[in-house]
């Protein structure tokens, strides 16, 4: 057997779910431990910044990084880890596409801080700042960057494994491929060409949607019928399907956590285009232009819904300041 691979796990701007997902592979962790040595895993071990700094270039074989880049500290760490690593896996939706935190890019940094720290009804704590003077001296805090970015906006990334979090099955499929040098790099592609509809077991009709119904207002949902056909927004058609559609299988619409399928740049506008094309077809020729547009009013919060997990990797990436408040 060849020498054990050195692997590591790191999280940046993230909820922590991705780290839990690593534990979700259960006994397989033991197999991994046999093939690989985990050299860096702040969540489970206690490495210090200086330890990493002291590592050689490319000392780590594979580094899984989850979370988006929100703070200057995130950026510094991933840049350092990049130096020390041969192959970086962008792990989870936040690292790959910015994730749900990416919706923060629809507000400015100041607005976010304002909302979080000064408008709160509870404790009016101090506004976070880079340097805080205390009796003992200066305390330095990580500072928010202007925008959330996916990992590959800062460092080169070899592999992408999106998901919020990636499912144990995805990791179980990915890990052996990543650890096995025999497998060609091209074959290790972790994002599918096909969308969630491909594995989704629901019965689908040719799409003609009259209007969308918020899922909380939907009654009598047929558990075997495509949710979109029932007027419930499901991001499945525009979302990469390597998850095997566990959400729709239990009747929950796909929220789009995997981001777009391979080769598609902008998940949100794809979904917008698809949905706008199939909504309100019935009788459109007898409607005025205004009435045709009204059809789309049932699409609530299109930006938030369509870009929930991929806004920072979309074409626009963040809110621009063309509109005066």
């Amino acid at each position: 057997m060849s020498e054990k691979k050195k692997i590591g796990f790191y999280w940046t701007g993230s909820c922590g779910g991705c780290q839990v997902s690593i534990l979700d592979i259960d006994e397989m962790l033991l197999d991994v431990a046999e093939q690989a040595e985990i050299v860096f895993w702040p969540c489970a071990m206690d490495p210090k910044y200086e330890d990493v700094k002291a590592m050689d270039e490319n000392e780590i074989d594979i580094m899984f990084i989850n979370g988006a880049i929100r703070l200057d500290e995130n950026k510094e760490m991933v840049e350092l880890l990049r130096e020390k690593t041969k192959e970086v896996v962008s792990y989870g939706s936040c690292a790959c596409n910015g994730g749900v935190f990416g919706l923060g890019n629809l507000s400015s940094k100041d607005e976010l801080l304002e909302k979080g720290y000064t408008n709160k009804t509870t404790d009016q704590g101090p506004f976070p700042q880079k340097i805080t003077e205390v009796e003992e001296g200066e305390l330095e805090l990580a500072e928010m960057l202007d925008h959330i970015k996916p990992l590959d906006e800062h460092i080169d990334v070899e592999y992408y494994l999106p998901g919020c979090p990636p499912l144990p099955t995805q990791l179980e499929d990915a890990l052996p491929a990543l650890l096995d040098d025999e497998i060609e790099v091209e074959e290790r592609d972790l994002i599918t060409d096909k969308s969630v509809c491909d594995p989704c077991p629901m019965e689908r009709e040719e799409k003609e949607i009259e209007r969308l119904i918020p899922i909380q207002e939907a009654t009598d949902i047929d558990p075997d019928e495509c949710l979109l056909d029932q007027g419930i927004l499901c991001m499945g058609p525009a979302t990469a399907g390597m998850c095997e559609a566990p959400c729709t299988e239990v009747g929950h619409p796909c929220v789009g956590c995997n981001g777009p399928v391979k080769g598609v740049e902008d998940q949100g506008s794809r979904m917008a285009s698809a949905l706008a094309s199939v909504m309100g077809i019935e009788g459109e020729e007898n409607k005025t232009e205004e009435e045709v547009m009204e059809t789309m009013n049932s699409v609530r919060d299109p930006t938030g819904s369509f870009y929930m997990f991929s806004l920072p990797s979309s074409i626009m990436q963040f809110r621009r300041d063309d509109i005066d408040e």
């Binding site: 060409d193 509809c197 491909d198 009709e205 040719e206 499945g236 058609p237 199939v278």
Partner: peptide, 26 residues
């Protein structure tokens, strides 16, 4: 067909019914 995932979004949109769903290959 390596990419088409069978979402059936396109079928009703074609004004000429030129798109059909292949049940076998989905």
């Amino acid at each position: 067909d390596d990419i088409c995932s069978g979402c059936k979004m396109c079928i009703s949109v074609c004004p000429y019914d030129a798109i059909e769903y292949n049940e076998e290959d989905e």
